[in-house]
């Protein structure tokens, strides 16, 4: 069970969180003309990297904030957690 530091609440057990997938995906703008291929990339296509991965987590049994986690997918090492507006 991972130990995840919510940027709002601090260290909490993984039990309190829900995983939210790749955190580097940007939704296309509303009313934007977009090809089928671009749209499919956004909706369906995700990388499954071995190693560092920036992902979304939701503090679902806590403050209910979505935030980002940089985690190693093989060792589970968490390098940092940050608020969505604190991009890099």
């Amino acid at each position: 069970m991972l130990n995840i530091k919510c940027p709002y609440c601090g260290d909490r057990s993984q039990k309190e969180f829900a995983y939210g997938g790749d955190g580097t995906i940007t939704r296309p703008k509303l009313n934007q003309e977009i090809s089928d291929e671009e749209w499919d990339n956004f909706v369906y296509l995700r990388k499954s990297p071995r190693g560092k991965h920036i992902e979304l987590w939701h503090h679902i049994a806590g403050c209910r904030q979505w935030f980002k986690v940089e985690r190693d997918t093989t060792t589970h090492e968490i390098f940092r957690t940050f608020k969505p507006e604190e991009e890099f």
Partner: peptide
Amino acid sequence: VLSHLEYYLQIVWP
């Protein structure tokens, strides 16, 4: 639905 709404408010359209 609640998680869905929170996702769009916090991540997509803050």
